[in-house]
């Protein structure tokens, strides 16, 4: 398995949850979406990758190096952006930056100044005085200023209004065009429809799908049925079947689409995830 990041057989057992034998690799230059409902194990996976959690089993390699034993070198090239920058809420951004910058060999003050300007960030403010969107932008600024090759984003748009979210996705798209590899964990699947190349789908601590986003989504179709069509349909083909105001909707495998009555349409990531999670009729 080759890639910028390689995760092999990663497992972590808790009394009520288990991350089980997760293996994947991230393609260099790609945006990979890590999806799954709340509690699926996304944060546990990211924390295990970054050494916050001690996995029971498995190995993580970044840039061809084992994380264990090389974490200082590896973290020089990683930028982490979470949904809310909650660090040192009472300290000025300038103070946080002054402490952070010397840790990075590749810190670029010009890039930092440019990001401050582009994102309209005021260094005299504290994180407590920033909106959620501005906090994410500050975290992104720190990540970009040390020329991170890999950006790990954990629910970065969770607290953002639609305009800020749109702006952030534009920034990510731009970064990706410039060659930055991005691992984007979210349950807001519409973000990934817009920017992801690949997908990792976690369900109950297991990686149930991985590969290209387009390939993953194109394997499924949305079906809308009337009451009468639903009664005629073969239940074993319908996945996550649910009733709505005007009838029924379900997910079917693309190869089964012709065998189900009703109107068939291309599925999107959100629809696939919702129906697979519901699992009705499986």
């Amino acid at each position: 398995m080759n890639g910028l990041v390689q995760v092999n057989s990663l497992s972590k057992r808790y009394p009520a949850f288990c991350l089980e034998n997760v293996s994947f690799s991230l393609r260099e230059g790609a945006v990979t979406g890590l999806i799954g409902r709340n509690g699926a194990g996304k944060t546990t996976l990211l924390k295990s990758m970054l050494g916050f959690i001690q996995p029971d089993r498995g190995e993580v390699r970044f840039f061809g190096m084992d994380f264990e034993g090389n974490q200082q070198r590896i973290k020089q090239e990683i930028g982490y952006v979470a949904g809310s920058f909650g660090f040192y809420r009472g300290k000025r951004l300038s103070a946080i930056t002054a402490v952070t910058a010397p840790f990075y060999d590749a810190w670029d003050d010009q890039v930092y100044r440019r990001c401050l300007k582009d994102f309209r960030l005021d260094e005299r403010k504290t994180p407590a005085q920033l909106s959620e969107g501005m906090k994410v932008k500050y975290a992104l600024t720190l990540a970009l200023s040390h020329h991170a090759r890999l950006l790990i984003l954990d629910e970065p748009t969770s607290g953002l209004d639609p305009v800020s979210r749109d702006e952030l996705l534009d920034v990510l798209a731009q970064l990706n065009r410039e060659g930055t590899t991005i691992l984007y964990s979210t349950h807001v699947t519409s973000d990934l429809d817009r920017c992801a190349d690949d997908i990792l789908y976690l369900r109950d601590g297991r990686l149930t799908a991985q590969g290209s986003l387009r390939g993953f989504v194109s394997a499924w179709r949305d079906v809308s049925m009337t009451e009468e069509e639903h009664q005629r349909a073969d239940d074993s083909l319908l996945i996550g079947c649910r009733r709505h105001r005007d009838g029924w909707e379900a997910l079917v495998r693309a190869e089964d689409a012709q065998r189900v009555p009703g109107s068939v349409a291309e599925a999107d990531l959100e629809s696939v995830m919702i129906h697979l999670e519901r699992g009705c009729g499986e």
């Binding site: 970054l50 916050f52 070198r73 590896i74 973290k75 020089q76 982490y80 660090f87 040192y88 840790f103």
Partner: peptide, 8 residues
């Protein structure tokens, strides 16, 4: 968390 994200 902040400190662990630094290259240390």
């Amino acid at each position: 968390a902040y400190t662990l994200l630094l290259p240390v």
